[in-house]
Amino acid sequence: MGMSVTISAATAQDAEQILKLQYLCYQSEAELYGDWRIEPLTQTLGDLRAELERGHGLVARLGDEVVASVRAEADEAGTVHIAKLIVHPRLRRHGLGGRLLDAIEQHYAAGARPAAKRYQLFTGHRSDGNLRLYRSRGYEQIGTREVGPRLTLVTLEKAA
Rank of each mutant, 00 (worst) to 15 (best):
L58H: 06
L58F: 06
L58W: 00
L58A: 06
V59T: 11
V59C: 07
A60Q: 03
A60K: 03
A60M: 02
A60T: 09
A60N: 05
R61W: 09
R61K: 15
L62T: 07
L62W: 12
G63I: 10
G63M: 09
G63E: 15
G63N: 10
D64N: 14
D64K: 13
E65V: 12
E65D: 15
E65N: 10
E65S: 13
V66D: 10
V66I: 12
V66R: 00
A68T: 05
A68Y: 00
A68H: 04
A68V: 04
A68M: 01
S69T: 08
S69L: 05
V70S: 04
V70G: 04
R71N: 14
R71H: 14
R71D: 09
A72D: 12
A72I: 08
E73H: 11
A74R: 03
A74H: 04
A74W: 02
D75A: 11
D75G: 12
D75Y: 12
D75R: 13
E76I: 05
E76Q: 12
E76F: 09
A77R: 15
A77D: 11
A77M: 11
T79G: 02
T79K: 13
H81L: 08
H81N: 11
I82W: 01
I82M: 03
I82A: 06
I82K: 02
I82F: 03
I82L: 08
A83I: 01
A83N: 04
A83S: 13
A83V: 04
A83H: 07
A83R: 14
A83P: 00
K84S: 15
K84P: 02
L85H: 04
L85V: 15
L85M: 14
L85K: 09
L85F: 07
I86K: 03
I86Q: 07
I86V: 15
I86P: 00
I86D: 01
V87R: 12
H88P: 02
P89G: 09
P89D: 03
P89Y: 05
P89A: 07
R90I: 00
R90M: 06
R90C: 03
R90Q: 12
R90E: 11
R90A: 10
L91R: 00
L91G: 02
L91Q: 02
R92I: 06
R92P: 02
R92W: 03
R93I: 00
H94V: 11
G95N: 12
G95W: 12
G95I: 08
L96E: 04
L96M: 01
L96I: 10
L96T: 01
G97Y: 05
G97F: 09
G97V: 13
G97M: 13
G97K: 11
G97H: 12
G98A: 10
G98N: 07
G98E: 12
G98Y: 10
G98W: 11
R99A: 14
R99M: 10
L101F: 15
L101V: 14
D102L: 09
D102A: 15
D102R: 14
D102P: 00
